[in-house]
Simulated assay, not measured.
Amino acid sequence: MPPSPPSGSRSAVAGRLRAAGCVFAEDEARLLIAAAGSPAELAGLVDLRVAGRPLEHILGWAEFCGLRIFVEPGVFVPRRRTAFLVRQAAACARPGAVVVDMCCGSGAVGAALAASLEGLELHAADIDPAAARCARRNLARAGGRVYEGDLYGALPDMLRGRVDVLVANAPYVPTGDIGMMPPEARVYEPHAALDGGPDGLEIQRRIAAGAPSWLRPGGRLLIETSRRQAPEAAGMFRRAGLIPRVAGSDDLEATVVVGALPVG
């Protein structure tokens, strides 16, 4: 009978993670082992993950669109599906475009756009001080400017009528559904980064209503939402004076509503 693997081996760590319900246990074990400086530190990291702490908060970073995004504990973790929002925004932008990442969280969307497009004038805003702090770190290399405040109230007036692409991964979980989310989201991420109001669209309505004052003619607003919410989101874009379209990715289970401000 072969001996039991040491507690710090990848197979043993992966076994603990798998038993705790981690779907990608082998990958997570590899990352935790690489992050630990000693067997005792590894045991502590594994205990945190088994208790439900997001892997990204334990490591201090998240992988997003091929980038390593710095993420502090208590900050919203960028989701894989949001890569579709980045792709749609990149398709709307041109080199040197003025881009605003609204409800930026860690700044992951802005950082990914800056990595894929040359010479962006990049701005980002979030109401949460911890998120704004992370975003400043993640967007520093791209020269991005980060503002702390409530939606458009955070932005400088010099951006009015100049924005080519306004992108927002605003909260869109209905308040009543938050209790059904996995513990690593509802316990460890800020409530304000998840709660979109009774129907999940409360913050998106505010963003859509204010967008025409900030977009240049022909500029685009892009918001991530769910497939179920997309028809109502498109309607609120239309009521704000934007021409909407809905884009979706089956592979990423992602939905984005794009609204264009008419020229003239």
Rank of each mutant, 00 (worst) to 15 (best):
R216Q: 13
R133E: 10
V109G: 00
R227T: 14
A36F: 12
T82V: 09
E148A: 12
T82P: 06
P244L: 08
R227A: 14
I243Y: 08
P6M: 09
L45F: 12
L151R: 06
G196M: 09
A193C: 11
E224G: 03
E232A: 15
G179N: 06
F24P: 04
I58T: 08
A83E: 13
R30Q: 14
A93V: 09
L55S: 03
R81F: 10
F84Q: 01
R145A: 11
D177F: 05
I127C: 10
C22P: 02
R206E: 08
R186C: 13
A108I: 01
R206G: 07
D157C: 11
G52S: 14
M180W: 13
P262F: 10
A25S: 14
P5M: 14
H123L: 09
L194H: 04
G21D: 12
G96M: 12
V165Y: 02
D195I: 06
A254N: 02
E121P: 02
P73H: 13
S9T: 13
R53N: 03
S7L: 11
G8N: 12
A115S: 15
L261S: 00
V71G: 01
A154V: 05
Y188V: 08
A35C: 14
E224A: 04
L221T: 03
L166H: 03
P198V: 11
R239M: 11
E202L: 14
I203D: 00
A132L: 04
A168T: 05
A168H: 00
M1I: 10
D199L: 04
L32D: 00
G107I: 03
L42K: 07
G259P: 05
I178C: 07
Q204F: 02
G264N: 11
S4N: 12
A260T: 13
A90P: 07
A14E: 02
D157E: 15
P6W: 05
P78I: 02
N169F: 03
P231C: 13
H57M: 08
G60S: 13
L55V: 11
W214H: 01
V71E: 00
E63N: 08
E224K: 03
V256M: 04
R30T: 13
G176P: 06
A34I: 09
R227Q: 11
A90Q: 10
F70I: 05
L261D: 01
A108C: 13
V109M: 07
D177S: 14
D126V: 02
R81A: 04
R16K: 15
G210R: 04
V99G: 00
